[in-house]
Design a protein around this nucleic acid. Structure first.
Lengths: 252, 252
DNA sequence: CTGGTGTATTGCGCTATGTGCAACGGTCAT
DNA sequence: ATGACCGTTGCACATAGCGCAATACACCAG
């Protein structure tokens, strides 16, 4: 609601697409160059924007540092991390932790598998929301109304033949997940990768985060992976207990 | 230079420390609550700030997504990545890529070692600038004057007994590094971890990025790690060639 | 249910602050 | 040299952001 700040912040996603010079920024903002200059300068002073040698602007280092710090300060993450590591030691597969926020699901922690198969996911990266097992758990817990609205708004890209194709199918899947209290993604995102996921609940019983174990077909079949379900659920429950026990303290 | 934007942006590092409520934000900004509210609202609309269930504010998801996107669009990173992966396959150790920007050095890519020893470093995380091998390379290439000024401004935390203790020692080390064209960190950051690093140069001959191989003592001794130096330098040179060949294109 | 304290939120009048303009300066290529 | 292009500066005007004070809301105690 503050025009100046609004304009300044609009520059960030614009630069995320790639470097741009003053003129381009001013045009896309629909403001005079001198205005754009002042905004960019302010962003620059705060380190959010960097001016490279060819004078063009791109996003700056402090942005990464901020994101980094923020993610490390998330209380769920802090509490969950040791559990995730232990789980990884037990099963050897990649372990993810994700949260829902403002129509997006994103990874906030990851423990890499021990075998040399790399999955492309990264902390801070938005999750494929219509297929990922963790996303199903997080969305399944939203209030009915919100869930419906969101489901309608989403895109349903067909990553594979087994991707969830549309809103009704998605809502149906969410209902199932909600009922059973766990979720899977069997090749819905990448043909050869399967996941099992379980919810982490806060003191109020609502789902605060979700965790999953992922492994490619070449290492374990989907059925084998499913045998890990009890272990995954036990881990998630343990985290839930820790998390509910220590409600967000800040003794500042 | 724009007061409003300046204030709004000052909120971000403040929230990076942890969640805060309206009053706290207003106090620390030194503005009226109504002002703080308007700023926070604007930040919220852009997804940079999230309002959690207890009404307190913390940094939001879009921040991570932006940082993510920005890092992925860095041209050096894109060009270097396959080389880093190949190097990792050849030697098995952790490989890092870092750049210098505005008095900070930060990791922009990482390929994990294959053995189960985890180093704590993360993409986007500021590097221990006075000891890391990659930092030495990046700073050694700065213009004399800038280097001196920076060296004076820095802190020199003694992570270990072998950490570089003060500005003169650091400048001396930088001179050596500059001369020889590569750098090491032998237990200067963590007692048991050694690194060898080499510079990546742009078309203008200046150091654009630096890469390193890191391994703990328990896996290879420092001497053994040093035998990898030629390989590391060859990889860095190959990246330099690719990178100079394709100057920052954007066919937009 | 009532009174009280701690919040967040709203509306408003004042002036500081951000705005666009137009003129300047520097760089590159022809 | 000359012109085109982009970034930068100073300025006068009016908008847009500011703090104040009053209101609304939630939580707790009596």
């Amino acid at each position: 609601m503050s025009q100046t700040v609004d304009r300044a912040l609009s520059i960030l996603p614009l630069l995320a697409e790639g470097p741009a010079d003053l003129g381009q920024v001013a045009d896309r903002l629909g403001v005079h160059k001198s205005t754009a200059l002042r905004l960019l300068r302010t962003l620059h002073e705060h380190g959010l924007v960097y001016r490279q040698s060819d004078q063009r602007y791109r996003l700056g280092a402090r942005l990464f540092a901020l994101a980094q710090e923020a993610v490390e300060n998330l209380d769920v993450r802090e509490i969950a991390h040791p559990h995730l590591v232990r789980l990884n030691e037990q099963c050897g597969h990649t372990v993810h932790l994700a949260v829902y926020e403002e129509n997006e699901v994103l990874y906030i922690d990851k423990v890499e598998s021990r075998y040399p198969v790399r999955m492309y996911s990264r902390i801070g990266k938005p999750v494929a929301i219509t297929v990922a097992a963790v996303a199903k758990l997080l969305l399944a817990d939203l209030p009915e109304a919100e869930r419906r609205v969101l489901a309608e708004k989403l895109d349903y890209p067909m990553y594979t033949a087994r991707s969830i194709p549309n809103a009704p199918a998605f809502l149906k899947e969410l209902a199932t997940v909600r009922e059973q209290g766990w979720a899977t993604d069997l090749g819905g995102h990448e043909e050869s990768i399967n996941c099992v996921a379980a919810p982490i609940r806060g003191a109020d019983g609502r789902v605060a985060a979700a965790m999953s174990v992922s492994a490619p077909n070449v290492v374990v079949t989907a059925d084998e992976l499913l045998t890990l379900l009890p272990l995954v659920r036990r881990t998630a429950d343990a985290i839930s207990r820790d998390y509910s026990g220590k409600p967000p303290k800040d003794p500042s």
